[in-house]
Design a protein around this nucleic acid. Structure first.
Lengths: 203, 203
DNA sequence: ACCTGAACACCGTTCAAGT
DNA sequence: ACCTGAACACCGTTCAAGT
């Protein structure tokens, strides 16, 4: 049973860190986060063992929100539009959060992230299946592919993020066009498997 | 006229930094680079005003090599294959260099980088023009688009870089398929212009 | 049980002292 | 003219002292 002020401080730290990470990326200092939260630096480490763990917890929260979006889109009537809305939500998330992309590359070790990541992949797989069966998605693209490609539009548009804040939409469309059945050409490398993620995590 | 040992130290630092950056990304310490080069930490700052400037110089060198590859591919007989070899070279560069992707997002300010970046875009534009006229590239994709998309495959494959070092090729093919004429659908946002890069640099 | 701020080892950067 | 290493302000992290 946590103390009342401890619970309050925890959410204060999470909220402050979430905002600072989105604005300034992974490089924000703990001092800055603590100041924004109105607590001492040491308090942050009382709730999270390291900066990495704090970042992971926030990344996890944001991933869960995206997974929920994907799951709710499964009841959307149009399979193509459902898949497109899902990738739009994912790409937008990354375009608006400077730390999201960086955190996605790192922190594959945390089991909580693995769990929510599996949920996200499950939703993507289901959306991809529906689209494939409706004949609007090429046959060789998997849920893992869709999830991994979510980082691409924001990354491509990143150098111009200041001047053209909506440029990521251009690259999302361009990449999405490559997933259509009429764009299909043989791929030289197999899709990633669950085992690939496991071995990538344990090294 | 630089002193002999100074010229030698400069290349020692550049070579050491180039290798360390490729292996460990932007986070490598100057101490580590200096140790690998066999010089004192202070010597690094004698040749480069800051870590940022050192990174920019190395990024510039690598960009120039890629631009040269693009220019030489202009004499390749097959327009489609020339463009594909160019994007493969660019994507491979990033897949094998942990700092390349990160540096591409930052350091738009350096005028030397602007110059070589223009060269790279010029080569991409010429390759894209040829492919478009040959009817193997969709009509609405520009040289700027091609260059910005070079970061995408390595970024998408990054979480599995340890387990699947060649996965970036899958996403390169997938993205390239979106550039084919038969994949073309209307894009919601205009292509970037030279002015966009200028305004992005000066803020 | 949790908060706090001083302390530690590290980082990028500066600079006086050497040659 | 350039190299060097000690010094500085900062960072993430630890922990004794408080409540």
């Amino acid at each position: 049973m946590p103390r009342a002020d401890a619970a309050r401080n925890r959410t204060l730290v999470i909220d402050a860190a979430s905002a600072e990470l989105a604005e300034h990326g992974l490089d924000v200092s703990i001092a800055r986060i603590a100041a924004r939260a109105g607590v001492a630096k040491g308090t942050v480490f009382n709730h999270f063992a390291s900066k990495e763990e704090l970042v992971a917890a926030i990344f996890c929260e944001k991933l869960a929100a995206l997974a929920a979006t994907g799951e709710s889109l499964l009841s959307h009537p149009d399979p193509l539009d459902a898949l497109f809305q899902f990738v739009t939500a994912g790409a937008e998330f990354q375009a608006n959060d400077r730390s999201f992309c960086e955190a996605a590359t790192a922190s594959r070790a945390d089991p909580a992230i693995r769990a929510v990541s599996d949920r996200l992949t499950g939703a993507a797989e289901a959306l991809a299946d529906r689209a494939r069966k409706a004949g609007v998605l090429r046959s060789d693209v998997t849920g893992h592919d869709v999830v991994l490609l979510l980082s691409a539009p924001a990354q491509a548009a990143a150098p111009l993020a200041g001047a053209r804040p909506d440029l990521w939409r251009r690259y999302l469309h361009l990449i999405f066009d490559g997933l259509r059945p009429e764009a299909e050409h043989r791929l030289p490398v197999a899709a990633p498997t669950n085992e690939d993620f496991t071995t990538a995590a344990t090294r």
